[in-house]
Amino acid sequence: MSERPKLAVMKFASCDGCQLALLDLEDELLTVARAVQISHFAEASSHLEPGPYDLTLVEGSITTPEDRHRLLKLRADSKYLVTIGACATAGGIQALRNFADHDEFMRAVYARPDYIETLATSTPVAAHVKVDFELRGCPIDKYQLLEVIASLLAGHRPRTSTESVCQACKRRGTVCVVVTQNLPCLGPVTHSGCGAICPAYDRGCYGCFGPTVQPNTRALSDHVLLPRMASDQAALALHGINAYAPEFARGGQRLWQLAGLPKPLHPSLDASLETSLDTSLAASSATEPASS
């Protein structure tokens, strides 16, 4: 009898909400447990087996030197490494420190900051190791997680559309809150996956799933956000849960600048962000014929 693939769930700087999505798969959990051997999942069981693992789900961002070391070892131990959630995929809400002075933060929070050993930045897993698939969301959608596990086991790409949140609104019949209620909304530049929950409850999209492919954050800022909110509020809208996702990071910086409150990135990150942006642009301009 062939062994079931070994699944591990690992955590770095995060709130555990994305791991809970796996436990929250109540009706499907037994099927998951039959399809894979859950080898390491501290949130669910204290029985922890060492690697190697066939599929490792990684939650959380990298914020300490020790975490970085642990991640490198984990990568070596994993056949597939999949990040789950905004922290592991974009640095999370804690990546706001990337636009601020973390020493100052530590002095404000801790009585003895000298006891704390931390990195100056919060970065996504992909900034440190090769990632096989990034699942978006804050938190992730449990059915998308199921799709990722099922498709990797079946050997095909997960079926997680890169379309905007708007399309989920349209399919479920939600009337646009930008057009009818004059609300600011990140939906047009945000990756789908949540099922467009917030607009169905008269809220604009908060961008929990991060930027979609080629997000036009500049046009969204100028024509959707700024006519409806002050520029510092608009900057906060982009610099939220996915603040360090490259397009939201740059879009937010532009808005802070407009508000007269420039927020430069930590010097160690500026260049790497440019590289990520360049990569996404290069991927998107390969076949377009030159304009005459």
């Binding site: 399919r171 530049v189 036009n216 046009a219 959707v224 304009s291």
Partner: peptide, 17 residues
Amino acid sequence: WDAVAERCLSCANCTLV
């Protein structure tokens, strides 16, 4: 076409409505 692409969010609302 370039001018409109500067404003267009490519969000697909137009096609779905």
